[in-house]
Simulated assay, not measured.
Amino acid sequence: MSNPLDSLALAQFVDHTLLKPEATAADVRALVAEGVRLGVYAVCVSPSFLPIDAHGLKVATVVGFPSGKHRSAIKAAEAARAVADGADEVDMVIDIGAAKARDFESIREDIAMVRAAAPAPTVLKVIIESAALSDHEIVETSRAAEAAGADFVKTSTGFHPAGGATARAVEIISATVGGRLGIKASGGIRTTADALAMVQAGATRLGLSGTAAILDGFPVGTRPGSD
């Protein structure tokens, strides 16, 4: 199947991301400037950097990151503070161990507490760390996210040793909640082909740190800022 996207269209899928522990405020300012130049949808930064001037881009941040091993009340407080500090979108990490134990009800409760702390119009994305889960666990965590009122299911933090996004995981999430929830593929997406494969599999948002290189993989004339 041919791909209809050019780099300008693909940029609107992108959460341009900087979550490295060593990131500085100057790095975040550079991220925003690059995001504006590239025409991305949002920038995603650590919550300690908020509030930021995103120059019209949406602002996303993370909660319970990267392990998810935080009490739900702490995640909720972190989410509420992020919204107060100007976050438009919150990407929370579930308790991956609960998914492995197949305690999907506790996952639903965890997500619901964060949802209550960050109600609409804040966009809530739920990071399930799909590379660490079986197909069944991906399905059930996605269902828990939907039941708890999340807006997106997100594959990965990008920090887990099991790996990041795969087209297979995106396909499973899409088959489970696609058309009702958004799907964010994140972690290890490093080439134009990787990014397009995720969209082809059903992703509606992409978490990218190497956005410029990925958009540069398109022919000249379809890149942001090209004549």
Rank of each mutant, 00 (worst) to 15 (best):
D85V: 10
V199T: 09
G68A: 04
T222C: 09
R168S: 12
F152I: 10
E109N: 15
Q200C: 00
G158L: 00
S2D: 08
R223Q: 07
D95P: 02
A25R: 15
A120R: 14
Y41L: 11
A23C: 12
T204M: 09
R190H: 04
K100Y: 00
K100T: 11
L208I: 04
G97M: 04
P21V: 01
A120K: 15
I183Q: 07
L38G: 12
I94L: 09
Q200A: 13
E109R: 14
K125A: 10
V32D: 03
G182H: 05
K58S: 11
V83I: 12
S209E: 01
A185Q: 11
A80N: 04
D110H: 07
A76S: 13
S226H: 13
R205H: 11
H16G: 01
N3F: 03
G158A: 01
Q200R: 14
P4K: 14
A185S: 13
A60Q: 06
G164E: 06
T24R: 04
D110G: 12
E129R: 11
V199A: 00
V36C: 10
D227W: 14
G97K: 06
E105G: 10
K100E: 03
I183L: 09
G163R: 07
A144I: 02
L206H: 04
R168Q: 10
D95N: 15
A197E: 08
A82M: 02
V63M: 03
D194S: 05
A54C: 12
G187M: 08
A145I: 08
E109V: 04
E34N: 14
T157G: 04
E146R: 14
G149Y: 08
I189V: 14
A76R: 08
P219S: 11
P66Q: 03
A76D: 11
K184W: 06
I127K: 09
A185K: 11
S7E: 06
G188M: 04
I96D: 05
G163H: 05
R168H: 15
A144P: 02
A84Y: 03
G187V: 09
P47D: 07
G188L: 01
P119F: 07
M198R: 06
V63A: 06
I52H: 12
M92E: 03
I183D: 05
A145H: 11
F152S: 07
A77P: 02
T141Y: 01
A165L: 02
T222F: 13
S134E: 06
S186E: 01
E146Q: 15
A79D: 14
S209T: 12
V123K: 09
G187R: 07
K75Y: 04
V45G: 03
S48R: 14
G225T: 13
S7C: 12
A165F: 03
L57F: 06
S134V: 07
F104R: 10
D135Y: 10
I172G: 06
E22C: 09
D95M: 05
I183T: 06
D15M: 11
R37K: 13
P121C: 08
